Simulated assay, not measured.
Amino acid sequence: MNITDVERDALYKVIYSRRDVRKDFISKAIPDEVLARILKAGHHAPSVGFMQPWDFILVTEEETKNALKKGYELASVESAQKFSEEKREEYQSFKLEGILEAPLGICVTCDRERNGPVVIGRTIKPEMDLYSTVCAIQNIWLAARAENIGLGWVSIIHDDVLRETLDIPDNIEIIAYLCLGYVSNFKDKPELETFGWLPRENISQLIHKEKWSKKA
């Protein structure tokens, strides 16, 4: 099945306009059929040995979100101390999550025991199941953007908060907590790039030819 030029261009548009959304969520609910498409896109991500190690926990209740928000706030205070005094003030000015504002949260997990102890592709690099789960997250992110739905990855929260609040078994790895919802607008650039926190790297400096020491 060939991809047409129009379909190709649409994919690149989605990739380049994807954003990590932390605010501007609106209260409009995500229709069940739209959410089903997004989750199915995640489930069709590549996975090592076709083990499909992911699970998706959907979060909509305010009580659950409030517990997670408290966990984020504690972790954010802890994180702020790791920056220099100058950077700390700027860090604290950023809004880095939308746990309460987003209509939907999705916790993405990885079952490292799925399909047994020996899986094709994990015999040398056992962490490949974790990377496969991240591929599922990327698919969800791009599918959400194609549906004009914003998504933000909340990484400033301890796993034990997610584990206790969402009743996740000890043998299941927690990979991400995602906030999803329709937004009032999508930014032209990533916010941290706009704020000058860091510049976008020059891709020409990131490409090597044959050896690390040789830039392309």
Rank of each mutant, 00 (worst) to 15 (best):
V6C: 02
R8N: 12
Y12I: 06
Y12E: 10
K13C: 00
I15C: 08
S17H: 11
S17R: 09
R18G: 06
R19E: 11
D20Y: 06
K23I: 02
K23C: 01
I26C: 08
S27C: 01
K28F: 00
I30N: 12
I30S: 13
I30L: 11
P31A: 10
P31T: 12
E33P: 00
R37W: 01
L39T: 05
G42C: 09
H43S: 14
H43K: 12
A45M: 02
P46S: 14
S47L: 04
S47K: 06
V48M: 01
G49K: 04
F50T: 04
F50N: 15
M51Q: 11
Q52W: 01
F56H: 05
I57N: 08
V59R: 07
V59M: 11
T60V: 03
T60F: 13
T60G: 06
T60R: 15
E61G: 04
T64F: 01
K65G: 03
N66K: 15
A67N: 13
K70M: 09
G71I: 05
G71E: 12
Y72K: 03
Y72P: 03
Y72L: 01
A75K: 06
E78C: 02
Q81S: 12
E85T: 10
E85R: 07
E86V: 09
K87I: 03
K87L: 13
R88T: 03
S93R: 13
K95D: 05
L96D: 01
G98I: 02
L100G: 10
L100W: 09
L100N: 13
E101N: 05
A102W: 02
A102Q: 04
A102F: 02
P103S: 08
L104E: 04
G105M: 06
C107P: 01
C107T: 12
V108C: 09
D111W: 02
D111G: 05
D111R: 03
R112C: 07
E113G: 02
E113F: 02
R114M: 04
N115M: 10
G116Y: 06
G116H: 04
V118A: 08
G121M: 04
G121A: 08
M128T: 11
L130F: 09
Y131K: 06
S132P: 05
T133Q: 00
V134W: 11
E147W: 08
E147F: 04
N148H: 12
I149A: 13
I149H: 14
L151D: 07
G152P: 06
I156S: 06
H158V: 00
H158T: 03
V161A: 04
V161F: 05
L162C: 10
T165W: 03
D167G: 03
D167R: 14
D170E: 15
N171W: 05
I172T: 08
I174Y: 08
A176M: 04
G181N: 09
N185R: 14
F186H: 10
K187M: 13
D188P: 01
E191G: 00
L192P: 01
E193T: 08
T194K: 15
T194I: 13
R200S: 12
R200F: 06
E201P: 09
N202Q: 14
N202S: 12
S204P: 00
S204D: 15
I207K: 13
K211P: 00
S213A: 15
